[in-house]
């Protein structure tokens, strides 16, 4: 477990600033394929309405459907390989705000009723894995929306 976490941590090198280098994902996941099948965002990003972080799905979530082969794609086979080894899929985080920003998904999704694509872009159209953010999430971008909707612009709400 510790090794897995270290791999994950070691793999993180994304800076949420102007130059956003792209990462490579372990599996070429297609958001479009899953959304077309009727899966809503919160099926996999489970804590989007209950917690600050939306989180990525664990292997257990994927295996609920992919226990047996649904397609003959070798990418799908990788899920089962990871599961067999007892490892989590080492997804690389793409949307990551800097550590001095404390963002709450719960507040924006459950209370603010903001649709996912407003901040994350047209993820539903992606057929291959996300490797760079579709939306440039800068503070000025956050503030413009906050000002437009009359939400708080008090610094204390996001910076601790």
């Amino acid at each position: 477990m510790r090794a897995g976490a270290l791999i994950l941590l070691g793999g993180l090198c994304v800076c949420a600033c102007n130059q956003t280098p792209s990462v490579s994902q372990p599996i070429d996941y297609s958001h479009k394929a899953h959304i077309d099948k009727g899966l809503a965002c919160e099926v996999c990003h489970q804590s989007v309405e209950t917690a600050a972080a939306a989180t990525l799905p664990t292997n257990e979530t994927c295996m609920m459907c992919h226990q047996g082969a649904i397609t003959d794609s070798p990418e799908e086979e990788k899920i089962r390989q990871y599961a067999e080894r007892g490892e989590q899929i080492p997804w690389q985080r793409v949307y990551a705000l800097p550590d001095h920003v404390f963002f709450s998904h719960r507040r924006h999704v459950k209370v603010g009723q903001i649709a996912c694509e407003e901040c994350h872009g047209p993820m539903a159209k992606l057929t291959s894995a996300l490797t760079y953010p579709l939306v440039d999430q800068r503070m000025s971008w956050c503030l413009s929306c906050h000002q437009a909707r009359g939400a708080t612009t008090d610094c204390i709400h996001c910076h601790r």
């Binding site: 993180l12 800076c15 600033c17 989180t55 001095h100």
Partner: peptide, 16 residues
């Protein structure tokens, strides 16, 4: 520098 420092919060990928 425009870059920020990472702490363990980044590790909350799967679960917190």
């Amino acid at each position: 520098s425009g870059c920020s420092q990472r702490t363990r919060r980044s590790s909350f990928l799967l679960n917190r």
